[in-house]
Computed example of a mutant assay.
Amino acid sequence: MAFSTLADKRERGFLDGQFLIAMPGMEDGNFARSVVYICAHSADGAMGFIINRSQQISFVDVLLHLKMLDEHDAILLPEKTRSFPILSGGPVETGRGFVLHSDDFTGDSSIPISDDISLTATLDVVRAISEDRGPSRATMMLGYAGWGAGQLEAEIAGNGWLNCPATEDMIFDHCLEDKYERALATMGISAAMLSTDAGHA
């Protein structure tokens, strides 16, 4: 599903607002040990963001690239702004930024994802965060994960993914190292309990 169709989406699929947790046998290296927050799911496909993969680019790098400040001003930014997390959201459109955030901020193109979470992909939210007037909770991703019609359902049927309800705390939790294990724990299971073979414990 192309991101551009998300704004037009009104039909909700059964994976909307769910986490996908990669099974140990996930063959696609882009998604090994990943936790994906699904923002849109319909008969046309699905899209979401990996929420546990770090990005080498910093928020300051983003601001400099967008020419929102110069290097001298960057030094003066508060630590909270300098350390704002940038994640690798997925393998599609990796040069494009997206911000998942709490609904206390509404930008020019903000799209409600759930009752409490919105998505903004325009520069106004980046500028607001840099000026400490952005949403109370937010995470920026470069790129997203997308699936065509029926593709994700086939991957789930093939034992590629587990799914469970998403939690806002985990979406905005900046501790990435054990997020995969913690996501599994919300389902009462551990990585050691999982099998790469469908139908076998």
Rank of each mutant, 00 (worst) to 15 (best):
H41Y: 07
A154P: 00
A145K: 00
E79T: 11
P85A: 07
D73H: 12
E131F: 11
I75W: 06
S130F: 10
I57F: 13
E155Q: 09
F59C: 14
G143V: 06
D104N: 15
G146D: 04
H65Y: 08
G150M: 03
M141C: 15
D103S: 11
A74Y: 10
R82F: 09
V99A: 13
R137C: 13
T94E: 15
I57G: 07
D116L: 08
F98H: 01
N159L: 00
T81Q: 07
E93S: 07
S42R: 00
L63V: 13
S102P: 06
F98M: 03
L87K: 03
A138I: 03
N159F: 14
C39T: 09
P112T: 07
S54L: 00
G134H: 07
S136F: 03
L63C: 15
Y144K: 00
P112V: 08
F49H: 03
H72G: 13
E131S: 15
F49Q: 05
W147T: 09
T81L: 06
D115R: 11
A43C: 01
M141I: 10
W147D: 05
D116Y: 12
T122K: 14
V62K: 01
H41E: 08
N159V: 01
S130W: 09
P78I: 13
S114W: 09
T122D: 15
L64Q: 13
P78T: 13
R127K: 15
V62S: 02
F59S: 10
N52A: 12
S88Y: 09
S109E: 04
S118G: 09
I50S: 04
P78Q: 10
I129F: 06
N52H: 12
E155L: 00
I51K: 01
H41T: 08
I51V: 12
S58A: 13
G90S: 04
L66W: 01
E79K: 07
M141R: 01
R82S: 13
S102E: 08
I57R: 15
A145Y: 04
L87F: 08
N52G: 14
T120A: 15
T81R: 01
E79L: 06
L87M: 10
P85R: 02
D132M: 10
L69Q: 02
V62Y: 04
V125Y: 07
L66K: 14
A74P: 10
D44M: 00
A145G: 11
R96P: 10
A46W: 00
S88T: 13
T81S: 08
A46L: 00
D116G: 03
D61F: 10
I117G: 12
G134R: 03
Q151H: 11
A157T: 06
R133N: 15
S110E: 12
P135L: 00
I50K: 01
M141H: 14
P112D: 12
I111W: 06
E155W: 03
T106L: 05
A74R: 06
R137I: 02
H65E: 10
G89W: 02
L152N: 05
M47D: 05
G45S: 00
G45L: 00
L87C: 06
T106R: 06
I50R: 04
M68G: 14
M140R: 00
V125D: 12
L64D: 13
T139C: 13
S83W: 01
L66N: 07
I111D: 12
A154G: 05
A149Y: 03
D73C: 07
E71C: 02
T94P: 05
